[in-house]
Structures are given as structure tokens and as C-alpha cells.
Design a binder for these strands. Structure first.
Lengths: 336, 336
DNA sequence: TGTCAGTAGATAAACGTTTTACCCCAGAAA
DNA sequence: TTTCTGGGGTAAAACGTTTATCTACTGACA
């Protein structure tokens, strides 16, 4: 059906081996004449090599697998864009899979992608099960990069210093006079050792001699609903608080909605700080104060390092850590 | 390196042909005994067939190509989620490519995906070049679905009745007393015949005996910047208007920002209506009145129809048209 | 006994590449 | 004349499947 290398070779009057060599840029044993002819004919027929055949024989399939919690989360969408753009720059393509942070799906996804002979894998998020996933990936001997789930001693990680980002956010609240600060996170379980953002919160509180009230800690998923529902719960209890630090912007947006429905005002009654700097968060009125993570650049960098590993280039960096920075906008008020 | 069908066959003491048949569910000429043994062993070795080899020989590669303007646009991100979810339900996987509506990239993308032997292609957006792209896809004999670029006489389309949606939005403004209504669209050129949204605007105006002032028509891209800049331009001219109908929500959000910076209020001074109902648009204060397009369902449906075509099932529908509906929220005021 | 039908499975070709080893020829050197 | 060398290729194996055809055996029946 499609044009194959055979068609080109027949047309050019040479063997398919010669065509293959020429089109792969190996001119070592080919006359200029033949080379030019092959290239011209391949062009005329607009021949494109069958990637499956190539991948099968050479074990090099220019496809990388992206394992992502949820592409409809704007933060991950942005990161995906960075990844696909950078991959394409090097002739690689991407297949994408959403896991919704479900471990079963993560594992089958890894296996599936392996059966597609992907050249490499990027594992995004899913911190709590990352170790196990990585174990599987290693056992399949697939080059990989792990994004946003760094823990001590790991390598092949691209991550943001969440502790620091969260610390900055909470300290910002404290410096503006807030003392009772609630925290809503996306992790299913509270106080998990890997929740660097929560630890940043706790450390900031401790460093300023403020107690952490466990009744002001809520957890759910990294989405609007969690922000909305958990804020309603917080508001429903009789424990006073003047600010909420959120695990991400989506949670903050949900919280915002809940606060508004409670006829309270942001930031007059309750201050709010998000995390991620999703690009729509600037549209909120008042504009959301948040911690910026450079999603696009993170994606780009993850692919860059992955390609180094796939193509076995030396590669200087074991890991890459991005430094988040607080974006002060309008959702944090002064308290005296 | 990885477990192959040979390993399974050796272990089970049968030929690879038998293993292949059993694992593909064809038990016609296999004893129960052998069948069970093969299945057990394949399981024990956690064998997974090499998709490249399978795809190469059987010309069935469970991969579909998604050609999308920009995955970081939340509307497309949502749609992509619908597509990947539905594909996965049927054992298909997705490779994704962003085109930024650039024709060159669309064409190379189609060719590339063809060389990956994708089973089918979904072409999203890119209305102005859709015909040409589809021509190419057809010449490559790849089953496809075209999303959001329906024109008379086409088939394999999933689309939303943009004319109707836009008409509703503008009529809503008119019924609330607005007469000078600006329109900002994303198309590069104005009055393109394929801009159904613009036509809906014009028709609604005409049906209510309102003139269309060409100085109130602006076009750019479907993004924040366009909304922002074009609104600034509109505001800078001395032509009065009381409302803006926007080509999509992103444009509306940009417009919103511009209006705010101009120290004007939405909806008191200027009313605003968007298009898409991006799920963050509800977070705006005031909440954006917009036209809802069911992005996720559109994605699901596109894949469903594509799979019918790939697997040559009868398939009742030639096209699928979704009906948009106006979501009345808080950005449109009454004028007397 | 010979044959026919059915069962259970094996053999081998094919898919479209890449890659390694080999071949043939012309001219140079010995 | 023989031997070597390098240029310009070719032939064939290999990758891991699917699938059409082929075979060996077992009973049953005429």
C-alpha cells in the first residue's frame, strides 16, 4: 500500500541495503551519483520509512511514553506541551497516558508502553508509588526520567523544591500577620513523609513559633472539588483561621469558590495562597497569590535529560532541581 | 532482552504459532490442556507481545494519532482526555502532536503518524486547512475523524453547531438591550466563510435589525493575548459599545483583564460573553457567561466513531453534531 | 485393510526495515 | 603474472509477530 524501501530501490536500480544506508546518512560506500539518485527518488516518491519495521530491527523506536496523572489539569497540560515540543525537536514522538494517580493503571501503563518498545519513559507525579514504578521500569531496562517525585538518593529526577516553595508561601502569610493558617493538600493521606509541601508548611510554622492545629489540615485530591469541599468543612467547624495555604492552584480556586459562597471575601476575611501558577490563576479577581513552578520548562528539561540517557550521551546532571518562586498578587491581606 | 513469544513456546513445548493463536483467543485447534498450559506460562513469564512486530505483520497497530492545535489550551486538554480515555477503553493508545494551527506542521505530522502505522487519525481544529489535510489523509488511506471543522458535504466529522451557539450568545446580549456589540474572533482573517461563529453573530444582528459595525470586529488568535490586545484597541477607539462577544473563553478572559485595567467594570460598563465553557471560567468573578461545548464528550464521540471506521463496523452515523448551549452567568447586564 | 474425517498442532512465509559479512572489479604494487 | 587494496556495492540474516498451509495421528466406517 504505502511506498516502501523496495519501491525506492527498484526505481533507483540498487539494493535496499544501499537505499537504507543512504537515507540514514551513511555515504561511506556509495558514489555521489548513486547517493543523489536515491535521495531524489525517495523524495519524488515521498518515501517515509516504516517506523515499526525500523523499531523492530534496530531496537530504536523514536517514541517516548508520557505517564501523567491528568492531562486535563492545566499544569500538566502545560508540562506536556513542553515535553512534546522538546521531543519533537529531536525527532521523537510521544504517547500519552493518564493515570489519575491510580497505581494499577500506572503499572499496566508502564508495561504497555514497554510492549510498544518506547525508547524512554517519563513518569510524572504519583510520588507515593514512584519507587515501585521505577523499580518496574528499571527491570524492563527502559531509560526514564521521573518528574516531581524526588526523594533522597534518587537519580533521574526533575523536580521542584517543594519544601522551599511551600515554606515561602506560608512564611509570606506569617509575615503578613497570619497565625491560624489552614492547609489543604492533595495527598490522600496526611503527614506522608513525601509531602514536601506539607513539611514546608510545618517548618515555616515551627520556625515562627506557631502551633500547627491538626483540625486545620485537610487532604483530598489535587482538584477543584477538594478545594471546594474541604474549605466548606473548615468553614463549618468553629475553629478560627485567617488564611489557607493550598497544595495547588486548583485547590485554591475551589477554596475561593467556597469562600465566596459563604459570603466571605478574599482576601479581606480569608487570605489564600496557591501553588503552581496555572496560567489562568492570574485571571481570578482578585488575582491569586501563588508559587510559580515553570511547568513548560520542567517538561523541556525532563525530555532533554531523557534523551541524553536514551542516546547514552555523557550527561552531566544526575538530577535537575528547579527553584520555585512566590508570586505576590492580591489574595493575601495584612493582619495586625 | 524482553520475554518473547519464543520463550513462551519453548517453555510450553509447543510452536510459536500455537502460542500466538491461544493468546489471541483462537482456541479452535488446541486442546484444553495445551491452552491452559500456554496461558499459565505466558502469565508466569508476564509475557506481553511486541506491538511493533504485531503491527508490522498484521497491519493492525493499536495506536491512534491525535493532531491537536495546542494541548495546553484547556479546552483541547479536556477533549484530549476524553479521547485518550475512550481509546484506552478499547485497547488503543494515543500519540499526540501539537500543530499551533500551522499548515506545514499539520502535513508533516500526518505523514509522520502514517509512518508510525497509526490505525486512525483524529484531526482537531485547523478548519481553514482541513480540506487539504483530509485530502492527504485519504490518499494515505488512513481512517480518520475530523473534529470541529465541519463544512457542507463533509463526512467523518464531529462538530458543534457554532453558528447556533454564537447566535444564541449574541441574541442573549440583544435581548438584554445591547445594540453595539463588538466581536473578537480567533481566525487570522475576518469574514472567512468557515467562521460559523462570526456568521452567527452577523445573523443575530441582522435578525434584530441591528447594523454590524466593522470597526467593532477584531481578529487574532484564540488566546489570552488576542482578547487582551484587541479589547485595548477597541477601548482606545472612540466607537461606543456595551458588550463583547468572544470567539472563545480565553479571548474573553483576556478581554476581561483589559477592561479591568481600563478601570471599567464587567458587566456594569461592558458585558462579556465567551465560548467553550472552559472549566476555569466559572472561577472568574463575576462568573463568565459563555456557550458550553462539551469538550470531553466530543473527544469520546470522535474516538467512538473513529474506532467504528477502523474496525469497519457498520456505523450508523456519518457525522455527529453537538448542540451548544448558553450558560447564563454573571457577565451580561441589562440595558434599557 | 484402506480410506476418510476430524483433531491437534507444526512449518514457513510474510511484514519492512537495519546491519553485517561478503563479493566483484579495477588498478597498483611486487 | 600474482597479490593486494579500496571502492561500490549486494545478499542475507535478524527483529517478533500473525496466518495460511501442511502434517501426523486417531478412530470410524465401508
Amino acid at each position: 500500500m504505502a511506498i516502501t524501501i523496495k519501491d525506492v530501490s527498484r526505481e533507483a536500480g540498487v539494493s535496499i541495503a544501499t537505499v537504507s544506508k543512504v537515507l540514514n546518512g551513511d555515504f561511506s560506500k556509495v558514489s555521489d551519483d548513486t547517493r543523489a539518485r536515491i535521495q531524489r527518488i525517495a523524495d519524488e516518491l515521498s518515501y517515509r520509512p516504516n517506523m515499526l519495521a525500523r523499531g523492530l530491527v534496530s531496537q530504536k523506536f523514536n517514541m517516548i511514553g508520557l505517564i501523567i496523572p491528568d492531562i486535563s489539569n492545566p499544569y500538566y497540560a502545560e508540562m506536556s506541551r513542553g515535553m512534546t515540543d522538546e521531543a519533537l525537536r529531536f525527532g521523537y514522538h510521544a504517547m500519552i497516558n493518564n493515570t489519575d494517580e491510580m497505581h494499577e493503571r500506572e503499572l499496566t501503563c508502564i508495561r504497555t508502553m514497554a510492549s510498544f518498545n518506547v525508547g524512554g519513559l517519563v513518569l510524572v507525579g504519583n510520588v507515593n508509588t514512584a519507587q515501585e514504578n521505577i523499580q518496574l521500569i528499571k527491570s524492563l531496562r527502559i531509560p526514564y526520567m521521573s518528574v516531581e517525585n524526588y526523594q533522597d538518593g534518587m537519580e533521574n529526577c526533575v523536580y521542584v523544591d517543594d519544601f522551599r516553595g511551600s515554606y515561602q508561601a506560608v512564611e509570606h502569610l506569617i509575615k503578613r500577620g497570619h497565625k491560624e493558617i489552614a492547609y489543604i493538600t492533595g495527598y490522600g493521606t496526611l503527614h506522608a513523609p513525601y509531602d514536601q509541601r506539607l513539611q514546608g508548611y510545618e517548618q515555616a510554622m515551627a520556625d515562627h513559633d506557631l502551633p500547627v492545629n491538626p483540625y486545620l489540615l485537610e487532604c483530598g485530591g489535587y482538584n477543584l472539588e477538594t478545594g471546594y469541599k474541604k474549605t466548606l468543612q473548615l468553614l463549618g467547624r468553629n475553629i478560627p483561621f485567617t488564611a489557607i495555604a493550598c497544595g495547588n492552584d486548583l485547590i485554591a480556586l475551589g477554596a475561593f469558590q467556597a469562600i465566596r459562597e459563604h459570603k466571605l471575601s478574599v482576601p479581606r476575611d480569608i487570605s489564600l495562597v496557591g501553588y503552581d501558577d496555572v496560567y489562568l490563576s492570574v485571571m481570578l479577581e482578585p488575582r491569586l497569590t501563588t508559587v510559580r513552578q515553570p511547568a513548560y520548562e520542567i517538561g523541556v528539561h525532563a525530555i532533554r535529560l531523557l534523551l541524553e540517557r536514551i542516546e547514552k550521551k555523557p550527561g552531566t546532571e544526575k538530577n535537575k532541581c528547579f527553584v520555585p518562586n512566590l508570586i505576590e498578587r492580591d489574595t493575601v491581606s495584612f493582619r495586625i
